[in-house]
Design a protein around this nucleic acid. Structure first.
Lengths: 171, 171
DNA sequence: CGAATTAGCGTAAGCTCTTACGTACATGTC
DNA sequence: GACATGTACGTAAGAGCTTACGCTAATTCG
């Protein structure tokens, strides 16, 4: 909570806001799977999608592709193995690596989900357009922070004695 | 993980992305507090800020203002009471309610944090401008989803037999 | 060639929210 | 006045990530 960036719009914390947004989207997707009688969870999407696109991937490759830690991928790996949707094998070229692939059952499910995923994607694009490009804005936000971190910007502002600051206005 | 909305930019899941962004911002702010020798956590900001602005507020008022559940506020309340930054009292007009206020120590800390918060806010606005208005885009995203949910949009797309769809393109 | 360093991955525990539930209180209805 | 319903809030437990750690394997360096 209390993550403000920047904190306007009624002072709603952006962190909680972002999380609520993503939770909402996931919940709606989960609801669609249920409505279509498909035993699937949106949080598996990334791994299943990547394996459908790339045949076989390691835990660390998936982590990089999905932008999460290898631990999160490992946790999803365990859930998908339990449901027999993927399988793993040792990498003959590197004993440290595990190669994940879709099982026959997993491929079948991905095929089944194809139309729904396509429609989800179309709907997501539509909403993003209406919102004026959230994804692009987020990419720019990441780039801006990479260029100069928030902490560095704050330090610059605190070290600028000549500049006259507006009166304090917390939000 | 695997939350795609929409899923491009290397397929990074927007959910994880949003969370990483907010975690990053919080961590940078926490780092600044440490650098200035101030025992404070960015996650308390919302509650402390609201109490500084509004004198006294109930748990549910804070929850509404901050856009989180009352449970999250209650959890923060406990942490801030443990650190003697706020205090609570019964509401004479409604025995169900607890009124939270800044303690003397809390007011002193808020005063101490004033300049840093202001600089943080300026930096946040600056980054938001460079990113092309993330907060505004997020507000529009919420509004678009309120207008028509993602699930409703998906259903419309699946129920559109006349429209010819492009070949399946998972991302 | 052996030691040091880096890489891959699984497990445990923590973070910061959430939902579910229960208790107490306030309000509305008959 | 009694009962039903709604509200406020605290606690327990869960979600979905994270960090920390440890083990094994591969690579680098002297």
């Amino acid at each position: 909570m209390s993550r403000d960036f920047p904190s306007r719009s009624g002072g709603a914390a952006i962190g909680a806001r972002l999380r609520r947004l993503s939770d909402r989207i996931d919940r709606e997707a989960d609801g669609l799977y249920s409505a279509f009688g498909i035993d699937f969870e949106q949080r598996w999407f990334g791994v299943m999608n990547q394996l459908a696109l790339n045949k076989a991937m390691s835990v660390s490759d998936l982590a990089t592709a999905l932008g999460v830690t290898h631990v999160a991928v490992s946790q999803t790996r365990a859930a998908l193995i339990a449901r027999k949707l993927i399988s793993t094998a040792d990498d003959p070229g590197d004993a440290r690596r595990r190669v994940l692939t879709l099982s026959a059952q997993g491929r079948k499910l991905v095929k089944e989900l194809g139309l729904l995923w396509e429609a989800l994607n179309d709907a997501a694009r539509e909403v993003d357009r209406e919102a004026g490009g959230v994804a692009v804005a987020l990419a720019r936000l990441e780039a801006a922070l990479d260029k100069r971190s928030l902490a560095a910007r704050v330090r610059m502002k605190l070290d600028a004695p000549a500049k006259q600051r507006a009166p304090a206005s917390r939000i």
